[in-house]
């Protein structure tokens, strides 16, 4: 049965990738632009799922890592362009996010549950305050105008985002199915027992934070150079973090792939419902609530349920 489920998942995954690959021939630049954002958001959600689903850490602050990566890259470019290649800026953003991940991991190794949740929430609020107070450097509430973009061609951006999502998805998925992932899962469910079995829980958790931070930061930095602007409301606001969490839970926790599906669904739905104007967010939230209440395993759970029947 697990094999069947995996293979079913595999085929759905393969089909999705094929659709994604041929899409640029058929759809307009705008749809590609939308999917570009969706793919980056998918990476945010997958990174979050690695931390929550496997390490069992309720992280309310995915945007802390994303924001650190995005702003580091954006600020470097805004101050040193064109002397500094944007790829260097992006690398620096990812690196800074890793440092942020280690800082965030420190309390996580001591406290758990709602206490850790709050610590991550506070981290986001602190970052937000810092960005507003240090307006000279960060652009403050205004947002930071970044002089360079990767490309203005919708297709180029689409390919970069798709490639990035597939590579990070493969790495995160592989990691979650490896021995490390299993140990993380064990320690998330019963920390003491996992420790008693001789696993170095601390080391593995730290690794999970570093990996999650790396991909969050990298995706944040790439998205800055897609948008050409970095602002609190796009990368740091608690609301953005909430979207990511909802995406991951909606798609199905502990699956990594589910998180990506959830993210693409959320962004896509938001756009489809745009003609409804202000009601769009409301309807998306209602859908998400219904899924969580009636299909707790998310979209992937629904697919698996179908497999069982």
């Amino acid at each position: 049965m697990p094999n069947f489920v995996t293979s079913r998942l595999f085929w759905i995954g393969a089909l999705t990738v094929i659709v994604a690959l041929v899409l640029p021939t058929y759809v307009s630049g705008y749809v590609l632009g939308l999917l570009t954002v969706a793919y980056y958001t998918a990476v945010f959600a997958m990174s979050w799922d690695l931390l929550f689903g496997f390490a069992g850490e309720v992280n309310f602050g995915p945007t802390f890592l994303i924001g650190v990566g995005a702003y580091t890259a954006g600020i470097l470019d805004a101050h040193f362009s064109p002397g500094l290649s944007i790829w260097l800026c992006i690398a620096a953003g990812a690196l800074a996010a890793v440092v942020g991940g280690v800082v965030l991991a420190l309390p996580a190794l001591r406290v758990s549950g709602p206490y850790f949740g709050l610590t991550t929430l506070v981290a986001v609020l602190m970052l937000q305050n810092f960005i507003v107070v240090a307006a000279g450097l960060t652009g403050g509430e205004i947002g930071l105008a970044v002089p360079d973009v990767i490309s203005i061609d919708a297709k180029t951006n689409y390919w970069i985002a798709l490639g990035f999502m597939l590579v990070s998805g493969a790495i995160l998925f592989g990691l979650s199915r490896s021995a490390i992932g299993l140990i993380l899962q064990a320690s998330g469910q019963d920390k003491i027992q996992a420790g008693a079995l001789g696993f170095n829980v601390t080391k593995h958790k730290l690794a999970a934070f570093v990996v999650s931070a790396f991909f969050s930061g990298l995706a944040g930095a790439l998205m800055v150079f897609y948008m050409g602007t970095a602002s609190v409301s796009t990368f740091v606001d608690v609301g953005v973090g909430v979207q990511i969490i909802i995406a991951a839970v909606l798609g199905g926790r502990r699956t990594v792939i589910g998180a990506a599906i959830g993210a693409i669904f959320l962004i896509g739905m938001g756009e489809l419902l745009r003609p409804l104007g202000e009601l769009a967010t409301l309807i998306v939230s209602v859908i998400a609530l219904v899924v969580i209440l009636f299909f707790p395993d998310g979209f992937l759970g629904i697919i698996r349920g179908g497999a069982k029947a």
Binding site: F52, V58, G113, P114, G117, V242, I245, I246, V249, E278, L279, T281, L282, S285, V286, A288, L289, I292, L293, P296
Partner: peptide, 22 residues
Amino acid sequence: KEIFILTATLLWGIITQEAIAY
């Protein structure tokens, strides 16, 4: 259940907020 209640109440809060804004 903890994370589910957190997510569900969060969503419910967003629904209420959007309804007020609307």
